[in-house]
Design a protein around this nucleic acid. Structure first.
Lengths: 339, 339
DNA sequence: GTGTTTAGAACGTGACGACTA
DNA sequence: TTAGTCGTCACGTTCTAAACA
């Protein structure tokens, strides 16, 4: 009959001090690797710590130092591969820097939802907030809001509050379009991500700008929602209405997949009849039918950059030069061919 | 010249008390929704809180209550779709229950790595540990270790410590094999996940058991590592050595994709020449070429179950009956056909 | 008495100045 | 002097018991 009441009392710094025959302050010095502790004393203390299985109380520590060693992460766009990878890599970087990460995943990008999610983090005394923002609305929710802690935003638009960390979506898109242009394509359809997505807008701009530079103008993009289904539908409609394209730049790999599906249904061959370029280089892309030419993003680097930005804000480290914006690079596979 | 020194002092419970003309204890009562506060007083206090933008210090609260309102999550297997979805849904459930989640992603399943990752969580005073364990080694790392807090393990094996939450991998695999048997297949090859993966072993057992029941015995599985590449390689070798199968049960959708790729390369048609069944139902599966017949898992429910198990352990709620193990269900698409 | 409010004591650390050899 | 050590205080909350309408 193990009752919850017999809460095993946990050792405090005083227990350790008593066992080691020193004051609690000396134990504190040992814990924090401060100088002026005789090696023999240090050893006695460490032995006592081990023996009592003493673990410092982070709560007490946070109370007096006003530092929680904790960072809040507000992440939207999960569980897609890109956002998931960024979160994963950010977590690793944070751990390496000695910080714990409290993550929250707002159900939508509504202002109220984001604010209450963030307020929960603030209540947990996080030292900084990192916002992984898929939609512009997520960024806007922080406008004119004094958080009391630094804000680092992972977002591909420069508007709005907070230190910005990003991958160069626009340049990535230009690279994709350039590839198709070099293959001799002139009509390059774009299946863009949804309105409100900053990545979608940046990629769209890159596509439009690069086309304009090549003297090709005025094309309107199609709009998907990142899902394979949306692009499947768009592809099916294009074919049905006799507007089957010769070259497509899809806003992400999932939509490229949906498009490939629609084209295959219509009996069109890729890359024989249609060239397709994706974006992200998800692990599946190399095994699409055909293997997808796409643009690879450095999510590992992005996660690191975000943590570096946090540390700079917290002045834990001498503020290193801001990292150069990482430019995605083209991965050519079998879904594109010259006309 | 904004120096770090001008740290904006944050309002405390005493500031609120002074402004409202009451004692700090009355403010505390208001904060915690305790009775015996006159409505007029409560209102004055709430007004003062709003005016000062007062936020209670979680650190101070945690120190005295010994409750951090925080749960530690040790997650392996990211950033794959399954684990990512589970993490996402667990986070949401935790937030709904008023808990923050500190997540950590060990780089590998080594005992030392897992322990140090977990110890970081313990130092943060988490009230419970949730272990999302892909490999058996992750579970083993916790054997014989008194954490001091409840442990809930999301893992498909019943061995080892901690409350267990899982999806019925074995039954899911049986369903997949049954489907192929009903289509008249007798030789059903299995491309299993890696040694050490509990999901892989469970699915493998389900496949073997179901075959045995059908009077088909002794088949040895192929071994992939969950990645499309591994299955592509396996598929290519099978075909090259003249052992092209007529029916394959792939351990997950990604490996099914790699196999489809290898079969397509070899000029074999799916489902005409080969029937393929996957596992997971990732968002891409419906748009593979051909759309993949697979087994769908309820990751949303699993995340909820995990949080429910935590709450039961913490006795926040009257312990409800443990949820029935969730059985995955078959989703039939176009990659399977009768012989 | 009864409902409301208050003052003081924890909680377990780190910072600081004082003390000792 | 100086390296090593110690005692007191503060951090911001909740809990307990006593005082007040």
């Amino acid at each position: 009959m193990s009752v919850n009441g017999d809460r095993n009392r946990v050792a405090t710094i005083f227990d350790v001090a008593r066992l080691a025959g020193v004051s609690h302050q000396t134990v504190s010095r040992v814990l924090n690797d401060l100088p002026n502790v005789r090696p023999a004393t240090r050893e006695r203390v460490e032995e006592a710590i081990k023996q009592l299985r003493y673990v410092p109380s982070q709560a007490a520590r946070a109370l007096v130092t006003r530092r929680s060693r904790t960072i809040g992460l507000v992440a939207t766009g999960l569980p897609d591969y890109g956002p998931s990878s960024i979160v994963l890599n950010f977590n690793e970087s944070a751990r390496d820097a000695g910080y714990a990460v409290i993550a929250t995943n707002p159900a939508d990008a509504e202002r109220a939802t984001l604010r209450s999610a963030t307020e929960m983090l603030i209540r947990q005394n996080v030292e900084a907030i990192v916002l992984l923002a898929a939609e512009r609305a997520a960024l806007d929710a922080f406008d004119g809001w004094e958080l009391g802690v630094p804000l680092v935003a992972i977002a591909s638009e420069t508007r709005g509050r907070g230190i910005r960390v990003a991958l160069d979506q626009r340049q990535g898109a230009r690279t994709a379009v350039s590839h198709l242009l070099e293959l001799g394509h002139r009509e390059i359809v774009h299946i863009a991500g949804p309105h409100g997505s900053m990545d979608a807008e940046e990629r769209l701009s890159g596509w439009r700008d690069r086309l304009a530079e090549a003297g090709i103008a005025g094309e309107e993009p199609m709009r998907g929602d990142w899902s394979p289904e949306s692009a499947y539908r768009i592809g099916t409609e294009l074919v049905a209405s006799g507007r089957a394209p010769r070259a497509v730049f899809a806003g992400n790999d999932q939509m490229a997949l949906g498009l490939l599906h629609a084209l295959a249904d219509a009996g069109l061959r890729v890359p024989g009849d249609v060239s397709v370029v994706g974006f992200d280089d998800i692990p599946e892309a190399a095994h699409f039918s055909p293997p997808l030419t796409t643009v690879r993003q450095d999510f590992v680097g992005l996660g690191r950059d975000a943590m570096a930005a946090v540390l700079t804000q917290l002045q834990d480290e001498e503020s290193t030069a801001p990292p150069p914006t990482r430019v995605p690079r083209l991965v050519v596979r079998a879904s594109t061919r010259s006309v």
